[in-house]
Amino acid sequence: MTLRTKNVGWSRGGHLVLDGVSLDPAAGETIGLLGPNGSGKSSLLRLLSGIAEPDTGRVLLDDTDIRTLRRRQIARRVAMVDQHSDTEVDITAGDIVRLGRIPHRGVFSGDETADAVAVERALEHTGMTSKAHRPWHTLSGGERQRAQIARALAQEPDELLLDEPTNHLDIRHQLDILSLVAELPLTSYIALHDLNLAAMFCDRVVVLEAGRIVAAGRPADVITEALVEQVYRVRAGVTIDPVTGHPTVTYRPVRSTPVSTY
C-alpha cells in the first residue's frame, strides 16, 4: 500500500481542474506525471500532499483517507517540493534543510542525534554539504532547488512529491537529482516537462490532458510519436535506445507562418 487516488475530481473558480483521476502505484515506484501546462500535474500533487482536498473521490495513504489525518501525521509520511519554494527570511541553506525535521519533533523536544544524521545525509545526497552555511539569498536558483529537495529528504518520508524538480538545474544536476530519487526506497511522484528525463528515470508515466488521464504505463509503451502530437501538439520522432530500452524523443521544428523566399 502507498499513496494513491481513487477517481478524484477537483474544481477551482468554477473550472474543472481534475476529472476522475485514479492512481495506484506499487510501493517504491517512481511515477512521472506528464502533460502540457494546465493539464493538472501540479493540482494533482497538491491533492496527494493533502494541501487541498478533492471535491469528489478520495486520496488514500495506505487505506486511510488523507482527510482524516492530521497535518503532522501526513508530514511524517509525505514530503513535497513545490516548484516555487522560496523564502524572504535571512536563513542559511542548512536551516532550510533542518525544517524537514519539524514533523519528527515532539511538543518539548526531538531526537537531536537523529535530526543531525538525517540533515547531514540529505545535504550529502544533494551535493549541498559545502553550501550548508551559505545565506539563502546568495544561492543560485539550482542551489536553492537542491536545498529544498534536501529538506524533503531530511523529512525521511515514505512518499515524495516533486513539482518540476529539474527547474533551474544544469544537465549534470538534473541527472544527479533524478538518479537519486529513482534509487530511493520511496514512492515518488514527479511532475516533469522533459519527456526524455521521464523515460530515463520513471518506472511508469501518467499523461494528463485537461485534467484527465489519457495514457499510463511504462515509458516505452506510452511515449509515442502519436501521443506527443496528440497531447503536446508537436511532431516528434521517438526511437528506442537498444541498450537501455528507453524511448528517446527528438522534436521536429514547426513553422506557424510560411517563410518568404527571394
Results as ranks from 00 to 15, higher is better:
R4P: 07
T5M: 06
N7A: 15
V8I: 14
V8N: 10
G9Q: 08
W10H: 11
L16C: 06
L16G: 12
D19R: 06
D19S: 15
D24Y: 09
L33S: 00
L33K: 03
L34N: 04
L45R: 04
R46H: 12
A52M: 11
D55C: 02
T56S: 04
L60N: 06
D62V: 14
D62A: 10
R71Y: 02
R71F: 05
R72K: 15
I74L: 12
V78C: 02
A79H: 01
T87V: 14
R98F: 09
R101L: 12
I102T: 11
P103A: 05
H104K: 06
R105A: 08
R105K: 14
S109G: 10
S109K: 12
V117T: 13
R121F: 05
A122I: 08
R134Y: 08
R134H: 13
P135V: 13
G142I: 06
R146C: 07
Q148C: 13
Q148S: 15
Q148M: 15
Q155G: 09
E156M: 11
E156D: 11
N167C: 05
I171Q: 10
L178C: 03
L178K: 03
S179F: 10
S179T: 15
L180S: 02
P185W: 06
T187M: 02
S188Y: 04
S188T: 09
A191K: 02
L192H: 00
L197F: 13
A198Y: 04
A198I: 04
A199M: 01
L208G: 09
L208Q: 00
G217M: 09
G217F: 08
P219K: 04
V222Q: 00
I223H: 00
R233W: 03
R235H: 13
A236Q: 00
V243N: 04
V243Q: 09
G245T: 00
V259R: 09
S260G: 07
S260F: 01
T261S: 10
